[in-house]
Each structure stands twice: as C-alpha cells, then as structure tokens.
Nucleic acid binder design. Structure first.
Lengths: 155, 155
DNA sequence: GTGGAACCTGAAGTCAACTTCATGTCAAGG
DNA sequence: CCTTGACATGAAGTTGACTTCAGGTTCCAC
C-alpha cells in the first residue's frame, strides 16, 4: 500500500480474497476496472473492494459471472453505489434464494416419500423428475448455487 | 425394441431421457454396463433404467458423477438390487439435502439482515463470508446441487 | 438383398470460471 | 544504481460432464 490511496493488485487480492489471476480475469470480463501507472501496472480505487464484495456475495447466492456483470452494470455509472442500490439488487437475490430453498424442499419432500419405497421410477419418482417438480409449482428454470467453497477464509 | 427384452441405446436414451452420448460416457465411467451384439452394438438389460433413474436422482441432489459411481459400486455384484439397496443409497441424500437447505437458509438469513443496510463489507457481511456462515454452524464443506435443468421432460 | 436409420469409435470441442505458464518489465528499499 | 519481489501479457491448461465430429459399420423392414 502506498501514500496515495490507490491499491495494487496484490493489495486488492489480499484484501478481497480473490486471486490476482481472478482480478485480471474480472477486469477482462468488465466486472471491475483499474487505472494504470506510467509503467502499465494496475492501480485500484478503494471502491473496488466493495464491488468485489458484491461479486463474492452474488456468486455465493449462485449468480453466474455474466449475471453479476449485468447487475453491476445497472449500478449508476459515476457515483458510488448507495444503500438503495444495494437493497434493490439484494432484494432480487432474496427471491432467488427462496426459490432455491423451495426447490430443495420439494426435492426433499419427494425423497422422503421415496425412501424405503424403492420406487426410483423414471416416470413416477419426483427425485428423478425435477422438471415435473418445478412444473407443478408453476415456475420456470430453477437455479441452485454452485457449491460454497471454503478456500476463502482467514489465511 | 425387439423380441428378446434387451434394449438398444436408442431405446434406453428415449426411456431414460439421457442422450446416447451420455450413455456411452456413463459406460466409459463405469456407471452402467451393456452387453454387445455380434456386430458390436450395445444391448442393455431393463435394469439399466433403474440404475439411470438413480443416476438422475443423485445428480439432481447434487452428487458428482464420481460420487454416483461410488454409490453404485456398493450395490451387490451378482443379484439385482432390491428396494432395500436403493433405499440405503438414497437415505444419505436426506441429510445432504437438509444440509443444503440449512446453508441456503443461513445465506438468506444473512441477506435479510443485510438488505438496506448496505454493509457489503468484506469483513463483516455474512453473504460475502459464507465460510463464516458454515463455520458458525459447525459444519464442514457445504455442498449445493448444480442447477436443475429442464431439458428432460416430455419431448 | 438392400436402403437407410441407427449404431460404432476415438478424438476433439464446449462451457464456466479461473489458473498456470513462459517470458519479460516495473518499482522501491538498501 | 541495483536487486528482487511484484507485476505485465497472451496463450494454453484445468475440471466436470458431456456433446460434436468424421468416417465407417450394423440391423432389419420391405
């Protein structure tokens, strides 16, 4: 960290928990931006940390990078995102999580009714037929998040 | 379908909802087996359908193919699996689903407490720190299933 | 006995989200 | 000034779960 309050990739990696390679990747994908030194090295504003916190949170909820990018794009260009911005975005996540939980419960419900019956029929078993599960609830695609990783904790 | 009750790949693909290419892949991976005609074409026993129902169900729960393979390997070699066999295998899923639901709820809980607060801090926010969420509940790795796909319905 | 759908194989491609590599440049403490 | 750790780049590799491709073979209803 240096006198002016710009951060190097190393700083940002350390403080965000993302690998340097991931930061470069995110930049290519348009999720974050950086200024450059005269020598071409990246320098980040402090606000990138919040943006990255957003990215991590969204990824944990199960959004793809593309979705994260789109969400970030709806943030007002110039100014720092406000609480209202954050609330708007996280509200959508809430519904998404509800949906995910609902889908899992439906699956669990089906499992309970299947355990011991040994049905596992391609036609009848709800566990083997998740699209039916979703369909009977009148919902379209059901998205569940990728596995939560542990890799990013204290280190 | 032919007189003897062996099924062709096409039959199995049609009735299981898996693509022919997936069936060949599963065979290479040791999830299913097939006999061959004198000409080298695959012929499946009817029981492969139940096995595939298991695969689909397990995948929906969120197991990797490797895990599915291991589970299937515990099935008794010679005889046809009984209901009890299938029940034993699917019983473990219940805990797994519970764990997944629990993890999602923890996430959702954190989200609720975050909405509107705009915290999104890398250090403080539970949504940005799922490993903490998992840790405080005293559980190890938290696995969530891959997205449920719709592709497999009527067609 | 034949036409054509269905089948065969190994190799390569796909997708997401990154990581790793090879090779070369920058920055700053001593 | 110089060393050396941090940084730069584009290209290629990784993983899981398949799909697609190219080029040939089999099956079986007519």
């Amino acid at each position: 960290m240096r006198a002016d309050d710009l951060l190097t990739v190393g700083d940002v990696a350390h403080r965000s928990g993302f690998a340097v390679s991931a930061l470069r990747f995110y930049e290519r994908e348009g999720l974050i931006t950086a200024t450059r030194t005269s020598g071409g090295q990246r320098r980040y504003e402090r606000s990138v940390l919040r943006r990255l916190a957003f990215v991590r949170a969204a990824r944990n909820i199960g959004l793809s990078l593309e979705e994260v990018r789109q969400a970030l794009d709806t943030l007002p260009g110039g100014r720092t995102p406000t609480k209202a911005d954050w609330a708007r975005l996280s509200k959508a996540w809430s519904a998404r999580l509800d949906e995910q939980i609902r889908a899992l419960r439906a699956l669990r419900e089906g499992l309970d009714s299947c355990i011991g019956c040994g049905c596992l029929s391609l036609r009848r078993c709800a566990i083997s037929n998740p699209s039916d599960v979703a369909a009977t609830r009148g919902v379209g695609a059901v998205y569940l998040p990728r596995p939560l990783t542990e890799e990013h904790g204290r280190h």
